[in-house]
Design a protein around this nucleic acid. Sequence first.
DNA 1: CTCCATCCTGAAACGAAGCTGAGAAACTAT
DNA 2: ATAGTTTCTCAGCTTCGTTTCAGGATGGAG
Lengths: 221, 221
Amino acid sequence: MKILIVEDQRRLGQFLKKGLAERSYTATWVQTCREARDALCETGYDVIILDLGLPDGDGLDLLQEWRRGGFNEPVLILSARDSVQDRIKGLDFGADDYLAKPFSIEELLARVRSLLRRQSAVKETVLEHRNLRMDLLGRIVTLGGAPVELTSREFALLEVFLQNPGRILTRTLISEKIWESHYDVDTNLLDVYMSKLRNKLDLDAAKPLFKTVRGVGYQLL
Amino acid sequence: MKILIVEDQRRLGQFLKKGLAERSYTATWVQTCREARDALCETGYDVIILDLGLPDGDGLDLLQEWRRGGFNEPVLILSARDSVQDRIKGLDFGADDYLAKPFSIEELLARVRSLLRRQSAVKETVLEHRNLRMDLLGRIVTLGGAPVELTSREFALLEVFLQNPGRILTRTLISEKIWESHYDVDTNLLDVYMSKLRNKLDLDAAKPLFKTVRGVGYQLL
DNA sequence: CTCCATCCTGAAACGAAGCTGAGAAACTAT
DNA sequence: ATAGTTTCTCAGCTTCGTTTCAGGATGGAG
C-alpha cells in the first residue's frame, strides 16, 4: 500500500509518515507542489493525502490538474480551511474525502481504509476479518488475540479467503492460487486443508467461519 | 439518480428530501430500519443516506447487514454522534462517508456528488431486477439486501431469467441452458426448480416475480 | 360446467460431493 | 542417518442437492 503525503508542515508530515508506517503502509512525504508532481510520475500510489496550503501553489489546482489528466486514484484533502464552502469546493474538484485540521490519526487511518476498500484488488499487509487477524509480513495469524500456528499451506489457503471475504470462491479458483496450475482434479487436498483450517480456526460452531457451498466451493462468512 | 434517506427526525427528513429533490435527485425518505429494509427491496438506489439513531434499531447494524449481503452502493452516514471513535466505527463498518450533524445541505450535496462520481467508475458483473440482485462473480444473490442461499441449479435457473427479464422463455429453451442438450422431456425437473425458486424468492404474492405461461414457459416480471 | 392437459409441490430414493482420521511420502534440520 | 514436521493419498462415512414420482390444483377448450 503506497501512500503519498503532500504536506508542507515538517512536524505534521513526519507524524503522518510515522503513523502510516506503523500500520505497514509505505508512505512517501513531499512538501511542495513541484515535488508532488515529480512523485506522481512514479506510478503505484494507492492513495494521496493532500494538504491545500502549499508554499508554491494551491493543492486544489494540483488536484484539478491531476483529475483532468485522467488520474483516478483516491485523494483525501487535509486542510485547515474548514468552512463549508471549502469542503464543497474540495469535493467538487474531485477529492474523495475531506478532513479538517486538527484531526486524529485514527480517523485519518479509518478514512484511508475506507478509500482503499473502494479500490479493487488492493493488497494489504494485514488482513482482518471478524476476530481473525493475519499479518502477511510477519506471517502471524491470531484468533481473538491468541496466536494460531498454521503451516504454509494452511496460511496460503486462509489468505485467499481473507482477500475475498464474503465472496463464494470456487474450488478451482482456490486450488489454482495455492497449487499453481498443476492441480490434479482427482485429489481431495482442498477438502483436507479446509478440514484442518476449520479445526484450528472454526471453534465456535454457532457462528462458523467457513461455509461450504456444495458443488461450487467455499465462502468466508 | 435515486437516493434513499433513512432518518427518523421528521423535520430533517423532509428538509433533506426537499433539498435533494431541488437538485433533481429522486429521494425516498423512510424513518425506521424496517422501512429501510423494505425500501431496499426496490433496486436501483445509487446512494443511501443513513442516520444512526433510529427508533427500531441501530443504523450501523443495518449497514453491516447490507454489506454482508453483498450490497455495494455507497452509504453516507449522518449522525449526531461525532466522536472520532464513532466516525472510525462507521467507516470501518463499510460506510463511504461520515457527516456529523449539524451540517449544511450544500456540504451534503457535495459529498453525494463525490460518492456518485466514484460509483460510476466501477462496474461489476451484477444483474439486477426489481429487488433482486445477482452478483455473478461473488456468486451471491440478495433479495432486498438480504442474502438468499441458492443451490447450483437454482442459481443457474435464476441467471437465465435475469439475463432475459420480461421475456417469455420457453420450457425447452430454459431446460437446454441448464441441463445441457441431453434433457429428458418426460421429466418435470423444471417445474420442481421453479417451485423451489418461487419458495425462496417470490415472497410477495401481490407482485409475483415469475409468471407461468401455460403451454409455453415462464416469464420474469 | 366438465374434462383433460398442464402445472405445482411434498416426500422419498439416489448418488455425488464433502469430511475426516490414519498413514505413506517428502522434506528439513540437527 | 534420524527425528520431527508438513504435505499428500486413500478409504469409509456422512450430508445434502438432484431427480423421480405421485397426488392434488389449476386453467383453458369445448
